[in-house]
């Protein structure tokens, strides 16, 4: 766990230097995932580039969410789920026995499909992560983190005068931005987003998409989406999954304009889905 922490802060300082770290933040090699006897992912090899938005697309049940949940080991919560292969975060195997998932998830945050604010005040929602990780030593520091996170999530102007009101009272789009603010409050390196806009209306979706674009300055983002338009709008890299296989991966523009694989071609033109 200490390893991960020191490695991470090392990486963070590298990021601040003008020389850009070109090494991928995540590398997945030969990842197989099984739910009981059923194989959900088959030999996935995928690199996640740093400070970019990578989108995972594909028809329902193709394994894109499963892969996303391997990256912060949320799959551990599913009793029958088994992950094989090698996933490295900054060169460390995240499935190694000495890894503490709690520390891992501090560095790899997650935003879920349905906005899931805690039934607490807006302030306490954001402060939850910093509090459990002991990131602050004083109330004013915590206040700063809450404000910073809400600013970053583009929610500060809307809620700054009612931080003590319950987070569940916000609109769906605001709730999702609250969840994003909550995730970035613990200063993760990577944010995983599992169809973050699928429960939102088009206007709220547009706000979140702009937000994702701004967030990649500071964070690496991996987003699962059903909408190819969304993938094209927000991501720089796209990976196309089909029936548990990673069919094709590449720069988003290239993948959408000149896909190499016939299945990708069929999916983006709407023939399979």
């Amino acid at each position: 766990m200490n390893n991960i922490v020191t490695e991470m802060s090392g990486a963070a300082s590298v990021q601040n230097k003008p020389a850009v770290n070109k090494a991928p933040i995540f590398t997945a090699k030969n990842v197989d995932v099984y739910y009981g006897a059923k194989q959900a992912l088959d030999k996935i090899n995928l690199d996640i580039p740093r400070n970019k938005v990578t989108s995972l697309i594909g028809p329902s049940g193709c394994g894109k969410s499963t892969f996303l949940r391997c990256l912060n080991r949320m799959n551990d919560l599913v009793d029958i789920c088994r992950v094989e292969g090698d996933i490295q975060l900054e060169g460390q195997d995240i499935y190694a026995p000495e890894v503490d998932v709690v520390a891992l998830r501090q560095h790899v945050g997650m935003v879920f499909q349905k906005p899931n604010p805690f039934p607490k005040s807006i302030y306490d929602n954001i402060a939850y992560g910093p509090r459990i990780h002991g990131l602050t030593s004083s109330k004013s520091e915590l206040d700063d983190i809450v404000e910073w996170s809400l600013q970053r999530a583009g929610l500060w102007k809307e809620v700054s005068d009612r931080l003590q009101e319950p987070g569940t009272g916000l609109s769906g789009g605001q709730q999702q931005r609250l969840c994003i603010a909550r995730a970035i409050a613990v200063r993760p390196e990577v944010i995983l987003m599992d169809e973050p806009c699928s429960a939102l209306d088009p206007i709220a979706t547009a706000t979140i998409e702009e937000l994702i674009d701004e967030l990649r300055e500071k964070f690496t983002i991996v987003i699962v989406t059903h909408s190819m338009q969304q993938a094209a709008r927000v991501s720089q890299r796209t990976a196309f999954f089909h029936l548990g296989n990673l069919v094709e991966t590449g720069a988003t523009k290239t993948l959408f304009t000149s896909p190499e694989d016939e299945r990708t071609q069929n999916y983006i033109t709407g023939r399979i889905g």
Partner: peptide
């Protein structure tokens, strides 16, 4: 709801922190 557990665990809480908080 499971989504609240996911949210808490996804932020890096332990099981007991999730239960208590």
């Amino acid at each position: 709801p499971q989504s609240l557990r996911d949210a808490s665990l996804g932020l890096g809480s332990t099981d007991s922190e999730t239960i208590r908080n």
